[in-house]
Nucleic acid binder design. Structure first.
Lengths: 143, 143
DNA sequence: CCTAATCTTTACGTTGACGTCAATGTAAAG
DNA sequence: CTTTACATTGACGTCAACGTAAAGATTAGG
């Protein structure tokens, strides 16, 4: 009864680390997918020997990746979005360029939200109509 | 100067029709894609001989398809969504089942909207931070 | 009638995002 | 030490969503 599972590890830098399995289970993605994302440069976990050790920052990046996927972005697009999240600290010119990217990304997202709102509206109207139909049919069968 | 382009046609049922080119230009998709969607059962234009004639209803379906794509749904998912749009008029049991689909679809969309709102918030915060940085740098260079 | 533009189908190619072995390494448990 | 479990890197397979090229039918214009 006393097998205190070693379910947490720590790197020499002190922070928590996650194995590839832990992360894949937690977020319900395959280890293959995680390695694939790494291949595409979306994540770069440290290595202990040759096995991967994911830091909390890697975990956060993974969350962003998955959110991007849910929103229908390609891995390439997600890569660009992740770049916006990683602080660059360049000159004012660079920062201004980055700021533009932020804004255009916001526009993209807002357009997407309009699509969503329209779709929700459609579905909601469909609901109302259907409920009415069902109500009518029931009134009829109760005759 | 008097070549009144025959840019509109009408079917025997009276409604307007669109050629595959018109539609592809209007929505900026290739004719190949339109035929592909037809292959997958997402759209079924009439035929005049062997050429396709798209009705306004087909056009509306195409809009829904493209919206679905922008939201990251697969063609299969879009097919199911389109089914929700085509009135079935079945028994009460069927209608109740359909109602469930509407509702679960609404839930899906709402979850997606939460993702979007979160992403927008992130980007907006990034903007603010960046603007501050740029401001600081400029204040410094003006010394 | 000829040509050019569009339409068609058929079929194979491509890209993205992984899945699925296979062969191998390594570390903890018995 | 051997088994068991999970890690690794290739390499090839697969599925979706089209792209692209080939070959022929149709139609408007000169």
């Amino acid at each position: 009864m006393e097998t205190p599972q070693k379910d947490t590890s720590h790197s020499k830098d002190g922070h928590r680390t996650y194995s590839i399995r832990q992360l894949s289970k937690e977020f319900d993605v395959t280890a293959r997918a995680l390695r694939f994302y790494e291949d595409k440069g979306l994540i770069s976990p440290e290595r202990k020997g040759q096995t991967r050790l994911y830091s909390p920052r890697d975990r956060a990046r993974l969350q962003l990746i998955l959110r991007g996927k849910r929103l229908g972005f390609s891995l390439i697009e997600i890569h660009e979005i992740l770049d916006l999240y990683t602080p660059k600290d360049h000159g004012a010119a660079q920062m201004r360029a980055t700021l533009q990217k932020y804004r255009s990304q916001i526009e993209t997202l807002k357009r997407q939200r309009e699509d969503i709102d329209a779709a929700i509206k459609d579905m909601a109207e469909g609901c109302v109509w259907l409920e009415q139909q069902i109500h009518d049919v029931e009134a009829e069968t109760s005759n």
